[in-house]
Every structure is written in structure tokens, then in C-alpha cells.
């Protein structure tokens, strides 16, 4: 019991004094997950638009697969990217294994299904009549999809925030692909996992509090977005 209380006190000291290691880990976590979210947005918004617009056989099945992958286990995503990036794998020559860039790729793959699926859902929520209105006002197909994306911007932002939340809180893929190397690929979740296993609870708790605060931040952003929208 004492240990936990002491851990808490030490954790707060670490945060308040802006301990260099805590700060470094936090910033690295944020940067990796933010880049992963931006990359997944860059893929999922055009991809989601295309899937929403085009009718083709098996469209329902494709969307079904995407939705199933919402719950893609992080370790499986990690294993998959590990195999691709390892020296024996097809992209081994890029030397990305155990680098932040590799972790970005792993997290991007991990959250792509969520951001793509929710982008499709956001666009579908806009309804056919919006598209009819745009076409009748003389929009080209490209102009109309841009305008529909504009109408769906809040829902798409929510999708991206959810993706970011999943990226920053996952541990499996970051551990397998990043390797938790101190000063290079150590992020909040992998650090908590390691520090807990070696009994360094105060650092774990400090990092845990920060992670929770980030989750709170994401949640607050979603709520604000919702309120701003309505």
C-alpha cells in the first residue's frame, strides 16, 4: 500500500518538474501517433470516399471486412509489420524495424480500418439528397465529393480522433515493431509495461497518469466537437 502512495507522490513530482525522460517519452508517443493519424487520414479519406461513391460487386463484403478489422489485435498488426520490415521480409532493406518510422507504419496500419470505416459511415450519414443537390447546382463529381466531405467534417474528425486514441493507447504493435529501445523507440505504453515489470512503479504511474490525461484530452475534443457541431 505504501509503495502505491509513494509511487503516486513520486509520479506527481516527475510530472510537475517536467522530468526529461518522462517528457521525452511523452513527446515521442504524441509525435508517432499523430503522424500515424495524419497518414491514415491521407489514405482513409480518399479511400473511404471512393468506396462510398463507387458501386461494385462485393462492396458490402469489403465494408464488412473493414469493420471486422476495427478490432484487429494490436499484436497481430505488430507481427504483420514486423514480418514485412524484418531483414528477411520484403521491406527489410528499408531498415525500418526498431525505428520510430516503423512504429508509425504499424500504428497507421492498425488504425486504418477504423478511420476508413468511419469515414464511409460519415459520408453515408450525409445522404443521397446532398449529392443530388450538389449535382443539380452544377458540381462536377470531384467538386461534389469535396463538398460532401465538408458536410461530413465533424464526423470525419471524430473518426480521426478515435483512430488517434487507439494509436496512442496501443502497446502490442509498438512493442513488437519498435522494440522499446530507451531513447529511441520507447513510448508511454511500452515504458509502462517495462517499468512495471521491473518494479519501478512511480515512473509507471506517472506515465499512466499522462496517458490517461491524453485520453481525457481526446475525449474532451470529441465532446467539444459534438457541441460545436450542434
Amino acid at each position: 500500500m505504501n509503495e502505491i502512495v509513494e509511487g503516486f507522490i513520486e509520479a506527481i513530482r516527475l510530472i510537475v518538474t517536467l522530468d526529461p525522460e518522462v517528457l521525452e517519452i511523452t513527446v515521442r508517443s504524441l509525435v508517432i501517433s499523430l503522424i500515424a493519424t495524419v497518414l491514415s487520414a491521407a489514405v482513409s479519406i480518399p479511400l473511404g470516399s471512393l468506396l462510398y461513391l463507387r458501386e461494385f460487386p462485393g462492396k458490402g463484403a469489403v465494408i464488412g471486412v473493414i469493420q471486422t478489422l476495427y478490432s484487429l489485435p494490436t499484436v497481430i498488426a505488430g507481427l504483420f509489420i514486423f514480418l514485412l520490415l524484418s531483414n528477411a521480409g520484403p521491406f527489410g532493406f528499408l531498415r525500418l524495424l526498431f525505428t520510430p518510422a516503423g512504429m508509425v507504419i504499424a500504428q497507421t496500419v492498425l488504425i486504418l480500418p477504423i478511420t476508413t470505416g468511419l469515414t464511409i459511415a460519415a459520408l453515408s450519414g450525409i445522404g443521397r439528397e446532398v449529392r443530388d443537390t450538389l449535382l443539380s447546382l452544377g458540381a462536377t463529381e470531384y467538386q461534389s465529393i469535396l463538398a460532401i466531405l465538408g458536410e461530413a467534417r465533424f464526423a470525419i474528425c471524430s473518426a480521426l480522433l478515435l483512430g488517434f486514441g487507439r494509436a496512442i493507447s496501443e502497446v502490442g504493435a509498438a512493442m513488437i515493431v519498435g522494440g522499446n529501445i530507451r531513447g529511441q523507440t520507447r513510448i508511454l505504453t511500452t515504458a509502462i509495461s517495462l517499468e512495471t515489470s521491473i518494479g519501478n512503479f512511480s515512473l509507471s504511474i506517472a506515465l499512466g497518469i499522462i496517458l490517461l490525461l491524453l485520453a481525457l484530452g481526446v475525449n474532451l475534443s470529441l465532446a467539444l466537437l459534438g457541441r460545436w457541431h450542434h
Partner: peptide
């Protein structure tokens, strides 16, 4: 189609300003 336009029974109003709504078709052109 660009030389015609249509008003729907239940019009879709875009979630922007009144100006941007009205200017929509002109911006497309």
C-alpha cells in the same frame, strides 16, 4: 445540367453560412 437548376421538396441546406450556401453553384462554375 449546368444550364438548369432544381429546388427540391425538402431542400438540403449546407452547414455553412447563408452566403456560402447561395454562392455554391457559382463557385462550382
Amino acid at each position: 445540367r449546368r444550364r438548369m437548376s432544381m429546388l427540391f421538396q425538402r431542400p438540403v441546406i449546407f452547414d455553412t453560412s447563408v452566403f456560402d450556401n447561395v454562392a455554391c453553384g457559382l463557385k462550382f462554375r
